[in-house]
Every structure is written in structure tokens, then in C-alpha cells.
Deep mutational scan, measured.
Amino acid sequence: QIFVKTLMGKTITLEVELSDTIDNVKAKIQDKEGIPPDQQRLIFAGKQLEDGRTLSDYNIQKESTLHLVL
């Protein structure tokens, strides 16, 4: 699992595989929060994550926290 922190300070827990693409992750956030993926920007280690890449491409591990910017 990974964590996604919103600017409102809310933390969302997502069940993911490290082979999941950023697209997949955004879809899971949409399922939980109702935010359309095209409005989501995910940040990790100061970098904006690109849709076609996977979590492992960015060296994101289990229990990592991503930041969601709208």
C-alpha cells in the first residue's frame, strides 16, 4: 500500500502494486475520492509523476507517501 496526502491534510491509503502506472493510481484515487484523474497531479520527492510511468520507475516503495495537488 501507499499513502496519498491531500493539501487539505487528509491521507488516503491505496492498495497498489509497484508495477501499477500513475494512471492506475489516479483511477484508484477517483474511486475513493471522486476526483477526476485529469484534475489530479501527483508529486513524489518534489517531482510531478507522469501518467504512463509506473510507481517503480520513480523508486516509490510500499508505505511511501505521495502528495496530491489539484
Rank of each mutant, 00 (worst) to 15 (best):
V25A: 06
D57K: 02
Q61S: 11
K10D: 09
Q40L: 07
L70I: 04
K47R: 10
G52A: 09
V16F: 08
K62I: 08
P37S: 10
D51R: 08
L14G: 00
F44H: 10
D38C: 05
Q30Y: 03
Y58K: 01
A45H: 11
V69C: 09
I43G: 15
I2P: 00
Q40P: 01
A27V: 09
E33R: 01
I29P: 00
A27R: 03
V69K: 15
L55V: 03
E63H: 08
D57Y: 10
K26G: 03
N24V: 11
G46E: 11
N24R: 08
S64G: 12
R53E: 12
V25I: 05
T11N: 14
F44M: 13
I60M: 05
I22S: 10
I35G: 10
I35M: 09
V25F: 03
G34C: 04
S19F: 04
F3R: 05
L55A: 04
I29Q: 01
I60K: 02
V16A: 08
G52R: 08
K26N: 04
E17Y: 05
I60H: 02
G9V: 01
D31I: 07
A45S: 12
L42Q: 00
D51E: 01
T6K: 02
K32N: 10
L42S: 00
E33K: 01
K32A: 14
T21L: 03
Q1P: 00
D51M: 02
P37V: 11
Q30I: 11
K5H: 04
K32S: 11
A27Q: 03
D38F: 02
N59D: 12
M8Q: 14
G52M: 06
T13Q: 07
K62A: 09
I29D: 00
N24T: 05
P37K: 14
D38N: 03
I35K: 06
E15V: 09
Q1D: 02
Q48P: 13
K10G: 03
D38R: 02
T65G: 13
L14A: 07
S64E: 12
I43E: 15
F44P: 00
D51H: 04
E15T: 03
D23V: 06
K10A: 07
T6P: 06
E33Y: 01
I29K: 00
Q39C: 07
L55S: 01
E50T: 09
K62Y: 13
S64Y: 07
D57S: 13
V16K: 00
K5M: 13
S56C: 11
P37H: 13
A27S: 07
M8V: 13
K26E: 06
N59P: 13
Q30S: 05
L55C: 08
L49M: 10
T13M: 06
E33W: 01
L18E: 08
D20W: 11
E33F: 02
L18K: 06
Y58C: 14
L49A: 09
T54M: 08
Q48D: 15
D51C: 07
Y58I: 11
